[in-house]
Nucleic acid binder design. Structure first.
Lengths: 208, 208, 208, 208
DNA sequence: GATGAATGAGAATTCATTCAT
DNA sequence: TATGAATGAATTCTCATTCAT
């Protein structure tokens, strides 16, 4: 009559709610990755779920809200690591290398997440930068500027340098994932070397 | 009242057709840039035109077709220049510098074109790479590989290097356009130096 | 397995049931008054309650049923009084005056009830006549006809006279409630005088 | 009174538009009359039309807008007549009688219009007064007040008197329409007599 | 009984595309 | 060819009602 009362924190109802939210987020992630944000419909999302259409609206107000939730989850995953890494960097090379490593590592661990940002709708590749991602980039620029004022780096155009690092991160990350087995360290080394010493250093890793 | 209409080769009718096509393309470009592809409606496009909705379909079969035409126009504008530049390159640095120059030059001359690629829908930045653009990048990779086999460049991961150049081109291009007056040469120098010698060279342009 | 259920005058359980029913009815009344029947949702109703949505269906089968219950409660409140009043009427004026008094009195005591009938959704005033109300009106007509056949009233079109009284009751009642302090006697006198002697009598209350 | 009916220059397109608008209004009127405003759906309306669902939105923004258009059409039909009638009234009786006649006449000519105001949803009769209609009634009150200040009528509560007239108009109008052949003059006489001299006068039309 | 999330039919609305003028 | 209203399938969203807990 009485429940055997498995020592569970959550009641079944509460657990179902958590699961449903996850299911919707997962479905949204996979479909956004396939179709891109603009083309995806709410129906597409719930169709990948065993939930009813109305249920979507118990969890999210709209397509945009679920997308934001997805992006926020991404950002929450990466930003703390980025911040920690940069805080510990003693040289400019540490800073750059650590940043690439956190980013490529994250991509390798969670391909799905990146696919949302790098979707392929028909023949059109789309990349979406959410406010959170943009914010992460801005922080990188601040750190670069600090590195310059701290004398860790000769004066350069910090805005362009940030842009270069960001562009490289996305494009190299993309190609890294295209391979069977993502070689994170290889990508980190490549990107860092290029930033630090250009093609000269790429082919001559031990040059100063 | 009426235009003086110098007797031209084109009949008035024919001229109108050309003008309408241009008007639709221009409207499409500006609205895609604002809303992104997925969110833009055909009505949005023709609303920026003094044409009627039905007329749209006399010129393009669908929303997708007008988008493709826009992308193709971009490519047609750039690719011949890229091909010529690369063909004339004698060193790897020539190759890289020429590529960046053609691309940044194109962006500076036709900001609108790039806006399509770098749109801002709500808080979400979107970048769209069409097949034509991707093809242009693939050609760069072929040229880089050729440069290696010709001994112009030490062996490096050509795929990653292409990716790095592409990413830098888009991101630096973006920031270049953000400035009041686009400094094409500055951007070309920056990007080329970074590729060639990394941050060392950036702050020390005359190093070997 | 099941509760032993001690026979109580009212168990706590039973009391709760009564209270919940009342709570739902009160909430329904107030929200119907605001939004009108068609626009009100069951969720609107339970939101004004500390009950859960499912609980609604333990007490009423549907939105319509709660509305009917509300109307029936109104009618139950008024009809016995109307019947008694009319039964005691010795003259036609007694009949009319008593009817108006019961009705206006009821409105003054329970504004909320009337508001349900006279709701104001957006800019559109709505009045709802339920079967019970219609029945009450029909009885008035029967009494008027009886008054005529009893010689208390000269022969007139009883249907129109009933209609006139009903229309006056609603409209005058509405204006009476619009005042700070509902002047029931004033409204009764006005309506009765108008029926009995028209505007002449209104301004000349003591004329025959 | 009647338009000279200029042979219309309308093109077929323009004519179709006018016809479709009329068709939607007519369908809306009849379905509102059947189901009441709250219960009626846009689909119900267009289903009574040979138009497509999307076409509705070429003419009206929403269900509310079509309803308002209907009400405004009603008001436009009656108010000018009411204003004219009242302007010509020399006595208070003229004023009242003219008002009733215009209103009952209108009802008799256009039963459908009134049906919207007197609908029957399930067992619940609903009557809707739109702002335009309310405005018409407010004007009556002003005229009554003027009649008092002009000495045409002994001082009485103008608000209640207006309310009484309005209530009578709607209710008696309703019953008038319930008859096979609407007896406008009969209804006018009845209502006017009741207002002027109460039941005494009703049964004794020639009393002063 | 109470709860409140799930359900899914159906409502309002949009929009790419067609077609009569 | 241009026009712009018509079309209707597709989309977003709501809500009365059910049901597992």
């Amino acid at each position: 009559m009485e429940e055997m009362e498995v020592p569970a924190k959550r009641g079944k109802r509460e657990q179902t709610k958590v699961n449903n939210r996850k299911a919707i987020l997962a479905a949204a992630r996979s479909i956004f990755a396939e179709l891109g944000y603009g083309t995806t419909t709410v129906r597409d999302i719930i169709r990948r779920t065993d939930l009813a259409s109305g249920t979507f609206y118990n969890y999210f107000q709209s397509k945009e809200e679920v997308f934001q939730a997805l992006m926020d989850a991404n950002a929450l995953e990466v930003r703390p690591h980025l911040i920690e890494t940069r805080a510990n960097a003693r040289t400019f090379e540490d800073l750059i290398e650590g940043t690439f490593r956190v980013f490529f590592d994250y991509l390798a661990r969670d391909r799905g997440a990146f696919e949302v940002l790098r979707s392929n709708a028909g023949a059109i590749r789309v990349r979406m930068d959410t406010p959170e991602i943009v914010a992460g980039f801005d922080e990188l620029q601040v750190d670069i500027e600090k590195a310059i004022s701290d004398g860790l780096l000769e004066p350069v155009n910090a805005s362009y340098l940030t842009a270069a690092a960001v562009g490289m991160a996305f494009e190299i990350g993309d190609r890294m994932l295209a391979q069977e087995e993502a070689d994170v360290e290889g990508a980190v080394k490549f990107a860092t070397s290029l930033i630090m010493g250009g093609v000269v250093k790429l082919s001559n890793p031990d040059s100063p």
